[in-house]
Amino acid sequence: MARLEAKTDVTGSVWKITTVVGQTLAPGDTVMLIESMKMEIPVIAEDGGTIKEFRFAEGESITEGEVVAILEG
């Protein structure tokens, strides 16, 4: 099992966490939604995997490139 990181492509704030710890995602699934540039931009689990932890809560600010969740897959 490899440790995988889901990173945000944009600076903004966490608008909605659409998954839960323990949930298994397919490649390309959305982990959470970021509000940025007046849009709802998803953080994608490129390789899929099972969510182990979230690094941010809803409403918190995040910067481009930050890891928002750790997955295992």
Binding site: D9, V10, S36, M37, M39, I41, P42, I44
Partner: peptide
């Protein structure tokens, strides 16, 4: 692709 960075 708007899916990423809104397409910017």
């Amino acid at each position: 692709n708007p899916l990423v960075k809104g397409g910017a």
